[in-house]
C-alpha cells in the first residue's frame, strides 16, 4: 500500500473546529514555489500521525494538523498567507 492522498477538502471538519469560516475555500500561497489555489486542492496525506497537506505543484508541505486529545496543533509555515473569503460579503 502506498498511501494515496486525499484532497484538502478532507480537512474541512478538523479546520472547522478551529476557524469560524470554511478554510478549505481559502487560497494558500505556497512558501516553496508561490503556487496559489484553494486549500481544498492541496494533496492531503492522512495515513500518518497528523494531516499533511502538500502543494500539488511542488509537493512541499503547506499545512499540518496534529490532533491531541485536548488540543489541535496547526502548522502553517508552508503557507506564506491564507486569503480567506468572508461569508456574506
Amino acid at each position: 500500500m502506498d498511501g494515496t492522498p486525499l484532497d484538502g477538502n478532507a480537512m474541512a471538519g478538523d479546520l472547522r473546529e478551529i476557524f469560524a469560516v470554511d478554510v478549505t475555500a481559502a487560497r494558500y500561497l505556497c512558501a516553496g514555489c508561490t503556487h496559489t489555489d484553494a486549500v481544498g486542492t492541496l494533496l492531503l496525506w492522512h495515513q500518518s500521525p497528523g494531516l499533511v497537506a502538500r502543494c500539488p505543484n511542488c509537493e512541499d508541505v503547506v499545512i499540518t494538523v496534529v490532533r491531541a486529545p485536548d488540543r489541535v496543533f496547526l502548522d502553517l509555515r508552508g503557507s506564506v498567507r491564507l486569503e480567506v473569503p468572508l461569508e456574506g460579503s
Binding site: 500518518s48 497528523g50 502538500r54
Partner: peptide, 8 residues
C-alpha cells in the same frame, strides 16, 4: 500498518 507523510 504503513503511515506516511508524503509520497514514497
Amino acid at each position: 500498518p504503513v503511515l506516511s507523510a508524503g509520497p514514497t
